[in-house]
Each structure stands twice: as C-alpha cells, then as structure tokens.
C-alpha cells in the first residue's frame, strides 16, 4: 500500500550517522553519497518515498531530531 506517509529530513540538521537508515523497516531511507551538507556530511534522505509507512522509527532513533513525519489521512 504505497504513500502511507512521508518524512522530511533537515539537510543541515542531519549528521549522517545512518541510524535512521538501518532502522527503517521498509528500507526507504539512504545516505546521499553524491552530496554533502555544509558540514561535509552525507545526509539522509527519503530514497523510496512510496515505501514509507509513517512508523516513526527513524524520527525516534534520530539523535539530532532532524526528521519530521507525516501520515496519510485515512
């Protein structure tokens, strides 16, 4: 069931630790290895938007509170 939710990740707020990436159950997040933010860090982004289920695993594990989560209104 695609498009259950989506996340916004702050490019400058992300430190590229990767904790959100490994804890996403649908593997829709990734670090952007072809770009960096102003701190020279590869930031996380929603690589496969149609897989996000709005479970908030990424936002609870993110140390730097860089992730905002939205859920489709039923």
């Amino acid at each position: 069931m695609p498009f259950k939710g989506y996340v916004e990740i702050s490019v400058e707020g992300c430190k590229g630790c990767g904790l959100c990436v490994i804890h996403c159950p649908t593997e829709c997040l990734a670090l952007n290895m072809s770009d960096t933010n102003s701190y020279s860090l590869h930031y996380a982004y929603l690589k496969e938007p149609d897989k996000c289920i709005a479970c908030q695993n990424c936002s609870i594990i993110c140390p730097d509170a860089a992730i905002t989560v939205y859920k489709k209104i039923a």
Partner: peptide
C-alpha cells in the same frame, strides 16, 4: 491529504548540537 505526526519538540532549541554523529 497528509497530517503531521512527529516533529522536533519546540522545547529543544533550533541549534545544531555539538555532539558527535550518533
């Protein structure tokens, strides 16, 4: 068609923390 379900708390100042990644 979407609603906000999680965002950074307002009580955490909008500053980059100096801690190491992770």
């Amino acid at each position: 068609g979407y609603e906000l379900i999680y965002k950074r708390p307002k009580t955490l100042l909008d500053k980059r923390m100096h801690y190491c990644p992770g």
